[in-house]
Every structure is written in C-alpha cells, then in structure tokens.
Design a protein around this nucleic acid. Structure first.
Lengths: 209, 209
DNA sequence: GTTTGTTTCAAACGTACGTTTGAATCAATT
DNA sequence: AATTGATTCAAACGTACGTTTGAAACAAAC
C-alpha cells in the first residue's frame, strides 16, 4: 500500500473502515483520522461519502475483472480447437478473486469483506455498480460454461451459478470462521490450496446429476 | 406476523429495517415510526438498540436450529441400521433454513438477508451469538456427515463444509439477483425446487474427487 | 517577488442519532 | 372510587454525523 498521496491514504483508510463497520457505520471523521488527513479532504478529493465508496470499489473491481477475463482468454487460446476443461474455466473465475483476497498489497481480505457486505447492501448506486461489473464478467464466461456443461438445462445452470457465487463470496470474505470451525486444520493463507479445493468442489457441484 | 403487542411490532419493524439498512444504518426513530410505537418504547422493553438486535436474532435462530436437529434425527431414525444418505443429511441442514427464508409469516427473506449481513459483522456480541448457534448445529451434524463421506480427509471436509455454508447463505439472503442474472428463468419463490436444486449441487460438490 | 491555482486546515453549519426523564394514561385490585 | 403497577408519551439531553466555508499554506510560472 503505497501511501504517498492524500487520495491514496483516504482510499486505504476508507476501504478498511467500510469493511469493518459497514458503509453507514464508518464515519468520515474516523476515516480521515486513520488516514492522518483533514476532514474536509474527503469532500475536496471525492465530493461526498457516497462517491468515496464508489472510488474504493472501482479501484479493486476493475483490475480484478480484467484479470478474470485475461485468464479465461488465456486458457481458451491454450486449448485451441479442443474443448476448454470446466476446471480451467472455474479457475479463471475464482482464482483471480481469491488471489486478490489473499494479497495484502492489494487490499486483500479487507476488500473482500467489504465486497461481501455490499452484495447485500440495498443502496441503489452500489447495486448498479456491482451488478454491472458482474454482468460484464458473466457475459464473457457464459459461453465457456455452457460449452463445458452441455447437459444442464437453463434453469439449473443459473441456479448452480448462483450457488457458485455464494461459495466463492463466502470463501473470499470470511477467513476467520473456517479456522474456527475446523479447529485450525484449514489454513486460509494457503491460497493455492484453497483455490484447488474450491475448484474441485464447484466442478463437482456443477456436474452433479 | 401477529402484531398484537408493542414488543412484537418493534421486533418486526426492527427485523425489516436492520436487514434493509444494516445494524448501524437503521435508526430507532425509523424503527419505532414503522412500528407505530413511541421512541422510548424500545428502551422500555429491550433496554438498548444492541439488545433489540439480539432479541431479533434469537426469535428466529433458536426455532430454526431446533428444526434442523429435529429433521436430522427424524431421518436417522427412519434409516435405522442402514447408513443415512448424504442427500437426506444435507436436506436436513439447508431445507429448514430455506423454508424459513421463504416463509413470510416467520420473517422470511427479510430475516435471512439480515443473517447474511451479520455473518460479516465484526461486532463481538453478534459474532458470539452466531458462532455459538452454528457450533451447536455442527456438533449434531458432523457425525452424520463424516459417515456419509468416509473418503474425505479432515481438511477437505471442513473446507467443503465452508463452501456449503456459503452457497446456502447466499441462496437464503439474496432472492433478487438470481432473478436478475437468470433473466427471470429462476423462481426463488419455488422453495422446494430451490432446495432440491441446492441439495443436488451440494452433494455433487461434497462427493467430488 | 508577485501571481496563480491547488491543496490543506480549523471551525462552524444544521441534522439526526441513542438515550433519559417525568408526567400522562391505562388496566387491574382493593 | 381510590390505589397501584405497568405502559405510553412528548420533550429534551448531549453527542456525533456529513457537509460547507473561508482563510492559510504550498508549489509552480512569470
């Protein structure tokens, strides 16, 4: 987290406090205090608390989804004429997200917890932003998914996609409860192990009859 | 929702507004106004805003978990000496929750959205309550699950349980996005269809190799 | 060294919050 | 009808909030 500019300092502090206390639970006074910045700086640089939240989201979401699409296209190119394996498609979907959620240099766990919270936030602006982002990704992934799962009827396909999102979001957002309930057996810091385990689970579920 | 007493009216209004706006986003003024009750009534009947939230949770969670355990024991009794099928164990786990989340008389979607939000709430008192509840259920279900999934090593078992919770929570909490992304093909009001679809997916994932 | 535009600052604005208070109202008992 | 205890009520308490303001500090160009 390079904390050079006032803007960056505000974004980092806001990301953390939004994630910990929710959008309405985090005050600008707490954020600016944490960022070691004057209270009015938020309005100078971002205009309002709402637009600060948007900026926090955009900073992480845009690169994440770009990376997802890059991964998908890479494994499509590698497969050439052959069918892309379901495992590879799913890995392109959840891999970048989990790697981001474990990379403390890029917001890491904190940002993912925020994302998990915002999925249930009814604020219209937030929902428009999130749904818009998700649809972009889904549009790219849908052909590859249906090709790898030809036997699934439309309805079941969408439901299973929904379940997938749930597992993924929960895994990204919550890295404490898994340690608690497993008695420390599971290590959420083993990112690649977690991804592999999740991909196996999801492919099993998606292929189920 | 029988709205006889002041207490019940407060609980119902609080459940709705906590779910919609978050714990800190819902004000007592909005809650009491919705409940058509005096502002001071909250403190008279519950003591504080925090304790109101606790009461909202306890009212739904205790019966839900009792019902889960009842279902599990019923299908264990029915199986007798034979092994209980994984499908039946999973159904006992997610069925009652989804039925509750679709039963408007018992809080329904609203309560489940609240639950989804609170899973990520770092407030210590809330976490203690939720984790305590979850552990009670897990303790009952773990033997049945390991018996139905003997080939799974410890670590993978817990991870998959974690993924299961994610799918379930997401499905319970969010009944709008599935309609949006499926273009209306999926109907979250078809409770039993949703449960069947989810159970199939989860069993596929849990059994995956 | 003055000017210009950008960024920071302390202070204040009005509003909404959770909570407290003490009197008014109500229902049941004597 | 009077008394009691539980409940409701309007009003106010102090605090914290998002936002605005206008001056100070700073940096770059002339």
């Amino acid at each position: 987290m390079p904390e050079r500019s006032t803007k960056d300092r505000i974004l980092n502090a806001a990301e953390t406090l939004f994630a910990l206390n929710g959008a309405s639970g985090a005050s600008l006074r707490a954020i600016t205090q944490r960022a070691k910045v004057n209270l009015a700086a938020v309005h100078y640089h971002f205009g309002s608390k709402d637009r600060l939240l948007e900026a926090v989201l955009a900073r992480r979401l845009l690169p994440l989804n770009a990376e997802r699409i890059r991964c998908l296209e890479a494994c499509q190119k590698e497969a050439g004429r052959k069918k892309v394996r379901l495992e590879n498609v799913i890995e392109a979907m959840v891999g970048p997200a989990l790697r981001l959620s474990r990379d403390e240099n890029k917001g890491g766990r904190i940002f993912m917890r925020l994302l998990g919270r915002l999925v249930l936030e009814p604020d219209a602006r937030v929902q428009r932003l999130l749904t818009g982002q998700f649809e972009t990704v889904l549009k790219k992934f849908k052909p590859a998914l249906t090709a790898a799962l030809p036997h699934l009827e439309h309805k079941v396909f969408f439901w299973r996609l929904h379940f997938l999102v749930g597992s993924m979001a929960h895994t990204m957002a919550d890295s404490e409860r898994i340690q608690l309930i497993s008695g420390g057996v599971c290590d959420p810091n083993d990112t690649e192990g977690t991804i592999e385990c999740l991909v196996t689970f999801l492919c099993g579920g998606l292929r189920a009859k």
